[in-house]
Simulated scan of single mutants.
Amino acid sequence: MTTQAPETKIVESYRIACDGGEGALGHPRVWLQIPVETGFVECPYCDAKYVHKEFEGKA
């Protein structure tokens, strides 16, 4: 059995919300702040990686 890689999403804001995206099967909504230094943040629940559009291809 293989595990899928976490999803990477390109976003336009440095502050984003993640709820797992699966309705009742997701997780509690959390607000995440993308550090300007690194340009990305990972959700502590679902490991989704959010990359700011200015860092696309760099992070």
Rank of each mutant, 00 (worst) to 15 (best):
A48G: 07
D19M: 01
E37R: 06
R15G: 04
V36Y: 00
V11H: 05
M1C: 12
G20D: 05
H52T: 03
V11M: 04
C18D: 02
P28S: 03
H52Y: 00
A5G: 07
E54F: 05
Y45D: 08
V11N: 07
E37T: 10
E56W: 11
E7Q: 15
F40T: 11
E7K: 15
T3D: 15
K53I: 09
A5W: 02
L25C: 05
Y45A: 10
Q4S: 14
L25F: 11
G23C: 12
R15A: 10
V51Y: 03
I10Q: 00
M1V: 11
T8D: 13
C46I: 11
K58D: 05
I34L: 01
Q33K: 09
L32M: 06
G39S: 11
G26W: 04
W31H: 01
P35R: 05
G26I: 11
F40C: 05
S13P: 00
K9F: 05
Q4H: 14
G21Y: 03
Q33E: 07
E37A: 15
H27S: 05
E22C: 08
V11D: 09
K9R: 14
K9V: 15
A24C: 09
C46M: 06
I16S: 02
Y50F: 15
R15Q: 13
Y14G: 04
R29Q: 15
A24R: 12
R29T: 15
C43V: 10
V36L: 09
K9L: 14
A5Y: 10
Q33M: 05
P35C: 03
T2E: 07
C18A: 12
E42L: 10
G23H: 13
Y45R: 06
G26H: 04
E56Y: 13
G21D: 01
Y14N: 01
G20N: 05
P28Y: 00
C43A: 09
Q33W: 04
R15I: 13
E12G: 14
V30L: 11
D47V: 09
Y50C: 03
P6R: 03
I34P: 06
W31L: 04
A5M: 12
K53S: 10
V11Y: 04
A59E: 00
C46L: 06
A17C: 11
G39E: 05
F55H: 02
F55I: 01
Q4L: 14
H27L: 06
K58H: 01
E42R: 15
C18F: 00
F40W: 06
M1Y: 07
F55D: 02
I10N: 01
G57L: 10
I34Y: 01
E22N: 13
I16Q: 05
K53A: 11
G23N: 08
P28A: 09
E54L: 10
C46Y: 01
V30W: 03
C46R: 04
E12K: 14
M1S: 13
F55S: 03
E56S: 15
I34Q: 02
